[in-house]
Design a binder for these strands. Sequence first.
DNA 1: GAAACTTGTTATACAGTATAACAATCCCTC
DNA 2: GAGGGATTGTTATACTGTATAACAAGTTTC
Lengths: 157, 157
Amino acid sequence: MDDKRDKVVALLEETGLIDRLGFVLRFAQSRVWSDLVTAFEPFGLRPGHYSALLMLRARPGCRQQDIGEALGVQRPNLVAMVEMLEKRGLVARAVNPADRRSYALNLTDAGLALLDEMDEAHRAHEARLAAMLGPINPAVLLPGLRRLAGFGEEGDA
Amino acid sequence: MDDKRDKVVALLEETGLIDRLGFVLRFAQSRVWSDLVTAFEPFGLRPGHYSALLMLRARPGCRQQDIGEALGVQRPNLVAMVEMLEKRGLVARAVNPADRRSYALNLTDAGLALLDEMDEAHRAHEARLAAMLGPINPAVLLPGLRRLAGFGEEGDA
DNA sequence: GAAACTTGTTATACAGTATAACAATCCCTC
DNA sequence: GAGGGATTGTTATACTGTATAACAAGTTTC
């Protein structure tokens, strides 16, 4: 059953695609993201929901907009997401007295509890990634990926 | 203008997202892919078209299906792509006498010439990636990314 | 107080990706 | 060599993710 994979790898070598960072990055991301999606499926949530909950744990009372900026999600696309989290009782919107057009978002107790479970699922996900990487330490990849993502390392260009 | 980026980085550090391989991989891929898309925009083509043309240069006369398998694209989604490449005169479909249900796809002279230009654009793209990476050698990332993508290094699990 | 901007929201559109179904063709077996 | 099962390209379709425009309510600036 590895025949198909070997055939694909051979083709990628012939085309040279296997040496092109952009394309390999895309293939890797696709596979890793799939694993992350299935990791969170038991909770009925997706990776985006998880990262939003992480935001709310780190910054209680923040606005929808803050989440959008950190995660690179447009305002309109956050509406359904936050609405869903609220309907499931994981997040509460409180009126913000200082600025009455935005809500102050907070995790509920149920949200915090679920987030702990999701953290566990995420740890299992990272263990699977480590298995995929075999002898390669994930820490070898992170600095380069952060730079490609535009998160400069300690303030240099 | 880097204020916004610094704010985002600070948030990602607080949430811990900046240490999570899956998420950083996603951010990096998104940014790199954007660069690749704009790199090929002058040609009116997208990265997927480019990789399809690479396939045809490496494996002249191959079938649509072969491209789909190598690139991880479903059959139905290839139809419009090949049709477009044919209409632009970059690819020609020849009847395959050995198997009359599939076409033998080949690059035309125009397709080969355009591919050379796109190779040049791709080299410029990789130069930009190298600039983003600064002191980090792209070769440091490739083995790990290949493993995550499921392209095992020389036959081990 | 008016003009410009921000926040959340709706409506909408577009690309990418997925499946089902189908006709034509090929392969294998009896 | 006839028929059942698989394969190739294709159409139709649907679902997700993502993008923009427009708007009401509220805030800021001058």
